[in-house]
Design a binder for these strands. Structure first.
Length: 486
RNA sequence: GGCGGCUUAGCCAAGCGGUAAGGCGACGGUCUGCAAAACCGUUAUACGGCGGUUCAAAUCCGCCAGCCGCCUCCA
C-alpha cells in the first residue's frame, strides 16, 4: 500500500514519494527556548520522533532537522524580567529541553541548528530576497512583501484581501502591506544585535527556518512539520521566503499536529493551566505519557486530564504484564501448532496502520489485541502444554511486540519484570513509612493469616491502607504496591 | 467577518462505500478466609438531526444544530 500522509498543502492524504528514492529530508520547527516545555511541546516532539523512527524502520535514510529559536522577543523579554543575559537564558532552557525530551525517550535529530549560529546564512538569504525584489528595507528593518509572491496563502488557504480586511493585523506605517513581515529587525537600545548591510539588528522569526532548512536539506525536501498553530503565519511565510529565493518548490509534505487541551480548555498562560512535562513526569512513568500522547490521532485535539493519564497508565501496565504472561507461556514449551490471528503478522498489520497517516491508535489496538490473545491462551490452556502454541510462534510474537513498541512508538523499553516492580513501589518515600516497616507488617500479617487470625490480618491490611499501601496476596505470599500512582 | 476542522457506547478513541477495532470504567465470573490485584466474559441494530446519491453510507453530497481551531506570540 505504501505510506500516505495527510498534507496540509493539498488537504488530503497523499502517497508519499520521496524526492530521492530511499532518502527522506524532514524539517520540524522546534521550540523557542525561554521557558520549560509543556505537554503541547511534548505532543509535537513525540509525534515527529515517532515519524522519524517509523521512516527509519521503513528503511529510509532520514535527515531530520529540528531547530532551536534562541534569539527572539520572548527570550529578550524574559531575560530582562529575571535579570539574566538573554544568551545564558536561552542556553539554560536548551539544557532543560534535553532533560525533558531525554526523559521521554526522544531520539536526537540529525541536526539541531540554532538561529544565532546561522546569522551569516540568514543575511545571505535576506540579501537574495532583496535582490530578487521580494523584500525591501525601511529604517534598518527589512520587510518581506507578501504581494510580490503570487502563492502567498496557499498553505493556510487564506487570501491576502481577506486577511487585510480581518483588521486583526496591526497597522504599521513602515509596511507596504499590513501583512508584510520582518526578515530583519533593527536593534533597539539594549537589545542583542549583529552587524548587517542594513545596520545592527537581528533576524525575524520566520527567516531562520528558511535559512537553516536549505543549508541542511537543500532547496527542496520532503517533509516539513510543526504544531497546527504554525501553519499561519509561520509556515506560510517560510514558503514565501524559500520559494521566492529558490525560484521553485519547497517542502512537499506539510504535517501539522493538533493541540493538547487541559480538561477541555485551551492551555494558555492566562488561564494558568499550562502543564510542564517535568511536572507530569513526577506523577507518571515517561512511557505512560508517551502512550497517552499516541493514543489519539495526531491531527485530532487531545484532551489531558488526570483521569486520561491514569487510563494510559493502566493500559501500559496491561501491555507489560502481557509480556510477563507471554514469557511464562514460552517457557512452557507448548506443542500446539495453533497460530492465532491476533498474535500473527503483527509487524505487517502495525506497519499498515502506520502507513495510513501514522495511525498510532490503530497500532496500539493491534498490540492490545495481541495482549488479550496471550492472556486468553494463558487462562484457557495455561496448564495444558498440548494446547499452548509453540515457543517459536510465541517468541516471534514477543519479538514483534517489543521491537515495534520500542523502535517505533518508544514504549515497552524496560524489562517487564523491572517495570512491574518499579510501578508497584514508586513513590514509597513520600508515604511516611519505610520499606522495612512495610515488610515487617506484611510478614506479621502472613503469620496471623497462617494462624487464621483474620481479624489481626485485616487490621494490618487496614493500617497499611492508611499509608496508601495496597496488599496483594499471591501464591508466593503477599506483595504490596503504592495506591493511586499513575 | 474570512478560512479550516470536529460531532461514533458511561468516558477516551479507530473507522475513509460492504454491514461498528481498541483502551478505561461498569457489571458477571475465576481466584481468595474475606478482599485486592490479575485474568476471562458481557457491555452501540448503532455512528448530532433531516434529506439525497447508491444494490449497499458512520463512511459520498446538501441543508440544519452544536462544539473547536486559525486569522495576534504560541506546539
Amino acid at each position: 500500500m505504501g505510506l500516505r500522509i495527510y498534507n496540509t498543502l493539498t488537504r488530503k492524504k497523499d502517497v508519499f514519494e520521496p524526492l530521492n528514492p530511499g532518502r527522506v529530508g524532514m524539517y520540524v520547527c522546534g521550540v523557542t527556548v525561554y521557558d520549560l516545555c509543556h505537554i503541547g511541546h511534548a505532543r509535537s516532539v513525540v509525534l515527529f520522533d515517532v515519524i522519524y523512527r517509523f521512516l527509519m524502520k521503513c528503511g529510509f535514510a532520514v535527515t531530520y532537522v529540528r531547530n532551536f529559536t534562541d534569539v527572539d522577543d520572548k527570550i529578550i523579554n524574559r531575560a530582562n524580567q529575571v535579570g539574566d543575559y538573554w544568551k545564558d537564558l536561552a542556553e539554560r532552557f536548551i539544557v532543560e529541553f534535553y532533560t525533558d525530551m531525554d526523559a521521554l525517550g526522544v531520539l536526537r535529530p540529525t541536526h539541531e541548528p540554532k538561529a544565532t549560529e546561522h546569522i551569516g546564512e540568514i543575511q545571505a538569504l535576506i540579501t537574495n530576497l532583496i535582490h530578487k525584489g521580494f523584500a525591501y528595507e525601511v529604517d534598518g528593518d527589512v520587510m518581506y512583501s507578501v504581494e510580490s509572491f503570487s502563492g502567498y496563502g496557499k498553505l493556510s488557504g487564506k487570501k491576502i484581501e481577506d486577511l487585510v480586511s480581518g483588521a486583526r493585523v496591526e497597522i504599521d506605517q513602515k509596511k507596504r502591506n499590513p501583512l508584510d513581515f520582518a526578515l530583519w529587525k533593527a536593534a533597539k537600545p539594549g537589545e542583542p544585535y549583529w552587524d548587517s548591510p542594513w545596520g545592527p539588528g537581528r533576524p525575524g522569526w520566520h527567516i531562520e527556518c528558511s535559512a537553516m532548512s536549505v543549508k541542511y536539506l537543500g532547496e527542496r525536501f520532503d517533509i516539513h512539520g510543526g504544531g497546527a498553530d504554525l501553519t499561519f503565519p509561520h509556515h506560510e511565510n517560510e514558503i514565501a521566503q524559500s520559494e521566492a529565493a529558490a525560484g521553485g518548490a519547497f517542502a512537499t509534505y506539510w504535517i501539522h499536529n493538533g493541540f493538547v487541551n487541559i480538561r477541555s480548555e485551551k492551555m494558555s498562560k492566562s488561564l494558568g493551566n499550562v502543564l510542564n512535562i517535568r511536572d507530569i513526569l513526577k506523577t507518571c512513568h515517561p512511557e505512560t505519557l508517551r502512550l497517552f500522547l499516541l493514543s489519539s490521532h495526531y491531527r485530532s485535539p487531545l484532551d489531558y486530564s488526570d483521569e486520561s493519564l491514569k487510563e494510559a497508565s493502566s493500559a501500559l501496565e496491561r501491555l507489560y504484564s502481557a509480556i510477563l504472561v507471554l514469557d511464562r507461556l514460552i517457557d512452557a514449551k507448548g506443542l500446539s501448532s495453533d497460530r492465532p490471528e491476533e498474535i500473527m503478522n503483527l509487524s505487517s498489520r502495525f506497519v499498515e496502520a502506520m502507513e495510513d497517516d501514522f495511525n498510532t491508535p490503530r497500532c496500539l489496538a493491534i498490540l492490545f489485541e495481541a495482549a488479550r490473545c496471550i492472556n486468553r491462551i494463558n487462562t484457557e490452556y495455561g496448564a495444558n502444554v498440548e494446547k499452548i502454541p509453540s515457543s517459536e510462534t510465541l517468541l516471534n510474537c514477543r519479538t514483534d511486540i517489543i521491537n515495534l513498541s520500542r523502535d517505533v512508538l518508544g514504549i515497552l523499553k524496560e524489562e517487564p519484570v523491572a517495570f512491574v516492580e518499579r510501578a508497584r513501589h514508586a513513590g514509597t518515600t513520600e508515604l511516611g513509612i519505610t520499606v522495612s516497616e512495610i515488610d515487617g507488617l506484611i510478614s506479621e500479617r502472613g503469620q496471623a493469616r497462617k494462624n487464621r487470625d483474620f481479624k489481626r490480618a485485616d487490621e494490618i491490611r487496614d493500617k497499611l491502607a492508611g499509608f496508601g499501601i495496597l496488599i496483594e496476596d499471591g501464591p508466593k505470599g503477599a506483595t504490596w504496591r503504592v495506591k493511586d500512582r499513575n
